[in-house]
């Protein structure tokens, strides 16, 4: 354990932690408001440490979906972590054995990945531990605050919070769609397909979980074929 490296990890992870508290508060609020028990919202945040993946999983649980839908949806949404972990695995130092890999990979989120890729030197296990620690605390702690606050709020206010989850999704989609025409087209196609699956009689027999999977795979593949991202990005 290298104390200096650990401290630098804590320093770099703290801004992520602050960002996570606010988002996970909204998750705790909306999950409990939608009918999840408080303990389950906290357990989801502690064991999943994802945004979109656990939001979608929670939605599926609330809809009493099958475990098969849950498995495939979680896989599809989180498959991007595969690529991030892959990049992290290329940057860790020689001291990273199997045990270190098993522990550090639990904390590879979008933000942890981004920060670790910005670091100039190789990634030590001490640094990664520090980097991951405060985001986990922030994500779980924020969920607890949000989940408990729900029971203290009036009904009109908690009903209004039902839209917050979708607000977060919009906050993730819109800025890149504004900058990048290919993302915008992919988003519009996905929305159009989602409407088709909701309202067209022969498509609306497909359950919500499966239609999201089909739309995601087909539209992403189509967008990748039409607009491949530039090499070496």
């Amino acid at each position: 354990m290298n104390k200096q490296e650990f401290k630098e990890g804590i320093r770099d992870g703290f801004p992520i932690c602050l960002g996570y508290i606010s988002v996970s508060m909204a998750f705790g609020l909306t999950a409990v408001k939608s009918g999840m028990p408080i303990w389950s919202a906290i357990l989801i945040s502690l064991t999943n440490l994802t945004s979109a993946g656990q939001f979608a999983g929670t939605n599926l649980l609330l809809a009493q979906s099958s475990y098969m839908e849950l498995i495939i949806t979680t896989f599809i949404i989180n498959i991007r972590y595969f690529l991030m972990s892959l990049s992290v695995s290329q940057k860790v130092d020689k001291e990273f054995g199997l045990k270190e890999r098993l522990i550090a990979s639990f904390g590879v989120t979008d933000e942890v990945f981004a920060v670790s890729m910005q670091r100039r030197s190789e990634l030590t296990f001490s640094y990664m531990l520090g980097l991951i620690l405060t985001p986990i605390l922030g994500w779980t702690g924020g969920t607890i605050i949000g989940a408990v606050a729900t029971s203290l709020l009036p009904a009109s206010l908690t009903d209004a919070m039902g839209i917050a989850l979708y607000g977060m999704f919009i906050a993730i989609i819109v800025p890149p769609a504004r900058e990048n025409r290919s993302v915008l087209i992919a988003v519009i196609l996905a929305i159009a397909a989602s409407y088709a699956f909701t309202y067209l009689p022969f498509l609306s027999v497909v359950s919500g979980g499966w239609s999201v999977i089909i739309i995601t795979v087909v539209v992403s593949a189509f967008a990748a074929w039409l607009f491949p991202i530039p090499e070496e990005q």
Binding site: A52, I77, D159, I163, Y166, F169, I191, S194, G208, I229
Partner: peptide
């Protein structure tokens, strides 16, 4: 790589619309 790049946006867009319009009373 391109396929993986588009996934977060398509999945979130499909989950948000039209579900957002029935998310509140």
């Amino acid at each position: 790589k391109s396929f993986l790049y588009y996934i977060p946006y398509t999945v979130l867009a499909a989950m948000t619309f039209p579900a957002i319009f029935s998310s509140t009373a």
